[in-house]
Amino acid sequence: MSANTHVFTGGFSDPVFQSQSVFRMLMDGMARPGSVHAVEHDAGQPDPLGTAAGAIALTLCDHDTPVWLSAGFSKSSVGEWMGFHSGASLTREKAEARFAFVEAGAALSSFGLFSPGTQEYPDRSTTLVIEVAALGEGQSFTLSGPGILQSKSVEITGLPEAFLRLWADNRPLFPRGVDVILTAGRSFLCLPRTTKIVA
């Protein structure tokens, strides 16, 4: 199969119910930061996009949500695939992106160029979907904040090196700030801007 036809394959086989199911996991994930969810439906996304990241794109993105892709995704057919299946347009401007997808191992230097929203409209902020090596194993982190009873520990393998520093810079912006979804293959967990993370 050529790279080109790969763009038109995949997608949800039952969009109404599969996107509802993925959304409910996302909603639960945002409401209970750090809870790990697994996507059942494979959306046939092209490499190197993971199953969860692909399903999230199909569930949340459309022509109203410009999408930014990290360098590794930009070089692949991921952008065309998302465009064809969701209608989302790609943007090179981080500040315009409603969603940003970052491949595993990509260097993160700053969240600063993504939109944190405004003080009046803090909802107009970018949601970053960042692929990591694994969730539920690896280094342990302690989370606290709304949605978490006292504290919760999560294990993450391959969290970008700069992440904790960037996250610490994100928290004081509240109510502005970016929200993050960490994905690893089928699994994902959510980190809304309110969550505090301690290594």
Binding site: P15, V16, S19, Q20, F23, L26, M27, M30, A31, T59, L60, C61, D62, D64, T65, R98, Y121, P122, D123, S125, T127, P146, G147, F174, P175, D179, P192, R193, T194
Partner: peptide
């Protein structure tokens, strides 16, 4: 319709991320 649901779902996720803030 699905497009409307997506728009509302995005609003719900932002609402949860910013507790108590009214998302238009």
């Amino acid at each position: 319709d699905e497009q409307t649901k997506r728009m509302i779902r995005r609003a719900i996720l932002k609402a949860i991320a910013i507790p108590g803030y009214q998302v238009p």
